[in-house]
């Protein structure tokens, strides 16, 4: 539904977005990640036709955003960064306005407004002026505007920004549900969100695309992925460390902590090798050592994010 090809954006002499390409299909929720200032919002503004492209091509549902802007814009709902809204209007008035701009007039418009008010739990404040709303309501009002016309594509710039934990959870559930039938792009810098709602993630850094894959693939990039964490009881580190090093498949042994007779270790095996936890379990049983923790690490997203977006070596690899 969304096709982004070699998109470039120059701000004067500054290259803000550097040949970024990606696609989003129906039924996909794409997490758009990157540090602040990486070019996320700029890319989204080009997708939505707000900023002109300096190069490349954007197609929304087959319509080129620069050549057929009206057709393309009719296909998506957009929640801009910081969720702007006309503050002097009431929630209902604002949504009615968006409905008529979207061509929903008369009964169809009223129905769409009611549905959006229900979905975003805004019925209680429908007649309130937007500038008197709390941040959560304000944000949801702008979100309601984006989903009002039930578009096949949603482009959401930091949709959970400024919401409390309950509202965040609700927003994620909503996106997940909608993601089954729509094509959705969600920009965020909250990594747990990617895990929670996205079927695919891309990472952009300094205007360049540095990762494009599933959240699980992203996780597996972590140095920690596949490592085993084990917590041993009533064994001294002096005794345990050399013994663990001899276990089949273990390459490095790191003592993470030792207190109250409990030693916490992280063991790394050869890359790509599985079954480390099983052989360790067999070893511990043989020694009759007690343990209260034994698991294989999934890898930490923030770890990967950190490596991909800040070290030069990581960038070299992906070029």
């Amino acid at each position: 539904m969304i096709n982004v090809q070699d998109v470039v954006k120059w701000y004067g002499p500054m290259l803000a977005v550097d040949h970024v390409s990606f696609q989003v299909k129906q039924g996909e929720v794409l997490g758009f990640l990157g540090p602040n200032g990486a070019g996320k919002s700029t890319t989204m503004r080009m997708l939505t036709g707000y900023l002109p492209l300096s190069g490349g091509k954007v197609e929304i549902g087959g319509f080129d955003i620069e050549e057929k802007p009206l057709e393309a814009k009719a296909l998506f709902g957009y929640l801009p960064e910081n969720a702007p809204a006309y503050t002097d209007m009431s929630v209902e008035g604002f949504l009615k306005f968006t409905a008529s701009i979207r061509g929903l007039r008369g009964q169809a418009g009223r129905d769409a407004v009611e549905k959006a008010l229900d979905t975003c739990h805004l019925q209680g404040v429908r007649r309130q002026s937007i500038d008197t709303l709390s941040k959560g309501y304000f944000h949801r009002t702008c979100f309601a505007q984006a989903i009002l016309h039930d578009p096949p594509i949603l482009i959401l710039d930091e949709p959970t920004d400024g919401l409390d934990p309950n509202q965040k959870h609700e927003m994620r559930e909503l996106i997940k549900t909608m993601g089954k039938t729509k094509a959705i792009i969600v920009s965020t810098h909250i990594l747990e969100e990617v895990e929670a709602i996205c079927t695919r993630a891309i990472i952009i850094d300094c205007g360049k695309l540095v990762f494009n894959g599933t959240p699980a693939e992203l996780r597996s990039r972590s140095a920690e992925a596949g490592c085993v964490t084990v917590g041993l009881l009533n064994v001294s580190a002096a005794e345990a460390t050399p013994a663990l090093e001899k276990v089949d498949g273990v390459k490095t042994v790191t003592l993470l902590s030792e207190e109250n007779g409990r030693a916490l270790y992280r063991l790394a095996g050869d890359k790509g090798r599985t079954g480390l936890a099983a052989s360790l379990k067999a070893f511990l049983d043989g020694k009759h050592w007690n343990f209260d923790e034994l698991h294989t690490n999934q890898g930490r997203l923030d770890d990967v994010f950190h490596t991909i977006t800040s070290t030069d070596s990581a960038k070299e690899v992906h070029k």
Binding site: R45, T48, G49, Y50, P69, L70, E71, K73, A74, Y78, P80, E81, N82, P84, A85, Y86, T98, I101, R102, G103, C142, Q145
Partner: peptide, 10 residues
């Protein structure tokens, strides 16, 4: 910032 809203509508 409603300019962004206005100009991303059809």
């Amino acid at each position: 910032r409603t300019l962004e809203l206005l100009f991303t509508m059809p």
